[in-house]
Design a protein around this nucleic acid. Structure first.
Lengths: 191, 191, 191, 191
DNA sequence: AATGAATGAGGATTCATTCAT
DNA sequence: GATGAATGAATCCTCATTCAT
């Protein structure tokens, strides 16, 4: 009997390597070989498990988006009031893991991929809509213009990410959180 | 008789073509040949004038950033009060030309280029700092936390751009303006 | 309890699959995996039994050539006169099984393989010589130039096959037979 | 001004190299690099002029088919009677250039290519039909069953080619001609 | 000034083959 | 006996870049 069950292990390793490589390099034009090498296997095996570079990239995106969702879920678990929920989302967005330079760089690159690649666009839109509707749901009880406020908060979060990508003013995780939280306060009043 | 002053004409054509090509394609991996063809010349000539692909890209970035600055200058010309100046900046940011799908796509790609390419990063930072300091200068007389508010506004503008890049909720130019202006109102109170 | 006598079963399955795959695809560049999959096993097992792709191909050739011989043997069994023997060979050549599009395509490809691969050439030559000498033997009693006529008949059969491979005028089995039989008549006179 | 007019030269060189390489190797799986090298250029240039391997192969086929047609045209030029025309076609078919081992091998491979590749099939069919209709036209005045005889002669020619490909009995050009001419005699009687 | 010609380097992808279990 | 796992080698193709004219 052959060695079994390598597939999930290899796939996971490739996803991780993809994010790391894209993040570090800051570019989607990383080669499959680079990714595969980082994941400790040959590029042929990477193709074997994923079918092609695009699918590897998609898996990488999914990986990033999932870790975002995961962070949100964790933070939301303990939040009780609508306001606390919103704050949880904001805090999760700047979770040190997600907000790490590498992750942000990868995220930005996946945004670009979505310009060309329909599947990438689909993934990103799903994530965005989910974020939007969650925000909206919890804003409704406490905001007079929930739709409007949701738009502002979502855009602000993305904007902070984008600026992080340039590394210039490179805010820390906590500073970033503060900026958005304080805007929340201004928008709907202190709790 | 040799054609005179061809150089500036060619360069301008290439800059325009670069922005258009990167914007339409949604990717930095456009070829020099594509750009040159769109600009009506051979790729060899493009190299002759700019030296290499990177420099062509830089020229494209500079072109975009300049058109931003130009829009700002125009809007600011008629603004008299600090508040009016800030509103002018916001309005300029969403000038239909700059906020066109193509321009936004190009802008996003140049952001990514800055991840890898120091010169690109330099250009982008200069623009960002200029924007920041202009905002700051005009916020100072009317805001208690001008630095903080400048950060929020700048991030918000970028965030709206980013979301525009995904085309999903695809705001129009005027809607985008409204969102940021209304946030300004909330931050420092109605004029 | 180990399965007994798996080897001959597996080998036969592979031979059949090879012919089918080469025939349907119309090319020798079918992969071992495709063949193995069609034969219901892993490509590793195919290698295990045959040693390599070339040997699998050889086995496929042998399979085709044997089914030719088989058809000839069957038709010849009931033939009594020299003329009947020759007609039997011709009829066997266009036996619907052998003359099926798939078989012809495979046969043509094996001809090509023989250009490169000495073992393939050897197999094909053996078959050709056998056909030639059988024709010759039975032509001798009824032809003044048996060698010459054998050459013509053999070439004509192959030519009809080749044209079948292009599928354009795609003759049916019976039409093909008629053409060669009528030529036989012309060559040595009606029986 | 740049060096001009290389294209036709390069294309011709590639066509020649393709036929030679396919013919000598006896296989379509020659690499573009091999062909290009033989033609004295880089594989990149070959791609530049032809677009891809398939088109290079098509050009090779066309080259072979054209040299057939050319041989026919030449032989036919001096033929006056219908019978002489037919004999011209047969003689042309075994023109030493066309019937050279290399040419025959290339021709056989192109036949196989036509199994997979519609464009190759188209080319081959055109050539076959043209041959058929020419034979037919000249057989009409001298044969009672011109359609039938055309089929026989065409198939016989192809069959002789095919056997040549195997190099076993390797007929010379003149021997091959004799076989088909003598069959012609048998079919429609001596002139 | 301008361009067709030309290439080297590199990347995605495929596949026969081997190996450990 | 049988197979999933794994890879090295090879191939097509692309592209930035250089050069001769």
């Amino acid at each position: 009997m052959p060695k079994l069950g390598q597939e999930p292990i290899r796939r996971a390793a490739l996803v991780k390597a993809t994010i790391a490589e894209v993040g570090e390099t800051g570019s989607l034009s990383v080669t499959v070989s680079q990714i595969a090498k980082r994941a400790g296997m040959s590029s042929a095996l990477a193709h074997h498990y994923f079918g092609g570079k695009d699918q590897i990239l998609h898996a990488g995106m999914l990986g990033i988006l999932r870790s975002f969702s995961e962070a949100v879920r964790k933070e939301m678990a303990t939040a009780r009031t609508p306001r606390a929920k919103i704050e949880a989302i904001i805090r999760a967005s700047f979770d040190p893991d997600c907000f790490a330079a590498t992750s942000v760089a990868a995220w930005l690159n996946f945004y670009v991929q979505a310009q060309t690649d329909p599947e990438a666009q689909r993934l990103l839109r799903i994530y965005q809509r989910r974020l939007h509707s969650t925000l909206l749901a919890h804003l409704r009880p406490i905001s007079l213009t929930p739709e409007h406020h949701a738009q502002i908060l979502a855009a602000l979060i993305d904007g902070v990410y984008l600026r992080q990508a340039l590394r210039d003013g490179a805010l820390g995780s906590s500073e970033a959180t503060k900026i958005v939280l304080s805007t929340l306060n201004t928008l709907i009043g202190r709790a």
